[in-house]
Design a protein around this nucleic acid. Structure first.
Length: 261
DNA sequence: AACAGAATCAACCGCGAGGCT
DNA sequence: GAGCCTCGCGGTTGATTCTGT
């Protein structure tokens, strides 16, 4: 038995969306909200499949999308998140408000891949290219080395995040070379209060009062410029600031999916 | 100006996860 | 538990735009 098609394809448009289609989709979602993509096209009077409508809305029509070029900070954030998460574009997009997984995926493939190759880094493994070549000839596991601007290696990042998630208790054996290479990420999602738009004062000070290092969860990094002491102890549990599975502060960079609800 | 190749990015496709019956 | 349905994700495609010759 073959898989049934996602929609009746015989009477649906394909290819680029027209202005009229966009307007219809926007008007419908404004009036009724997102949800039930399968029935949406018919209800909205669109000759498109639900999947196509969802994609168009998420990737292009959503009002909270940030159009325009990626900043250098966004570049570095994407690279770091990719080194931790791999091709989990939706998770990476969740850390970049206003950016979509499709947009980040395209940007990665067209810009960042080349950028990393120019730095001598394998974009797939985030190892130095000559290191990757060596790995192909030996099975001995090695620790990951990535030449990012921040002094903390991704492995260290994971350890720091682990400290936060486990309340300061690091349970992993630091001498385990396999875990050094493939750290077990806690992929539990955390529900936190919705993202609050930043106040002008916060924006002036550089994104919610936190420097780039802190937004990456590297509060202990010497790169930290904001001077905020963010000791993660029992008191943090009583504050409104949450930490997601990467240990990054929610409320600073929140999940888009939660914002949209 | 014309053409070719490269780069970009919107959109499509197929699959897996999870919920429902 | 099996089968079906919907949603969302990641990989890929192809049309359009850009750049170099």
């Amino acid at each position: 038995m073959g898989r049934s098609p996602c929609c009746e394809k015989a009477h649906t448009n394909k290819g680029a969306w027209t202005k009229e289609e966009d307007d219809r989709l926007i008007a419908y979602i404004r009036a009724h909200g997102e949800g039930c993509w399968r029935s949406l096209p018919k209800a909205a009077g669109l000759l498109r499949c639900g999947k196509s409508c969802r994609l168009r809305w998420i990737n292009y029509l959503r009002p909270d999308l940030k159009r325009g070029n990626f900043t250098e900070e966004e570049d570095e954030l994407i690279i770091k998140l990719h080194s931790l998460l791999g091709n989990k574009w939706s998770l990476i997009a969740g850390r970049l408000p206003g950016r979509t997984d499709n947009e980040i995926k395209n940007y990665w493939n067209t810009h960042i891949r080349r950028k990393l190759l120019n730095r001598g880094i394998d974009p797939a493994t985030h190892k130095l290219l000559n290191e990757t070549a060596q790995d192909n000839t030996t099975t001995t596991p090695t620790t990951t080395t990535i030449s990012f601007a921040a002094s903390t290696t991704p492995t260290t990042i994971v350890k720091e995040e682990e400290k936060k998630i486990n309340g300061g208790f690091v349970s992993k054996d630091v001498k385990n070379p396999v875990q050094e290479q493939c750290p077990d990420l806690n992929l539990e999602l955390r529900i936190s209060p919705p993202y609050q738009p930043q106040q002008p004062e916060q924006l002036k000070s550089g994104g919610g009062g936190l420097c780039f290092s802190c937004r990456l969860g590297l509060q202990t990094s010497k790169e930290c410029r904001c001077g905020i002491i963010t000791s993660i102890d029992s008191t943090s549990a009583s504050t409104s600031v949450g930490y997601d599975f990467l240990g990054l502060k929610t409320g600073v960079l929140d999940y888009r999916s939660l914002e949209m609800k």
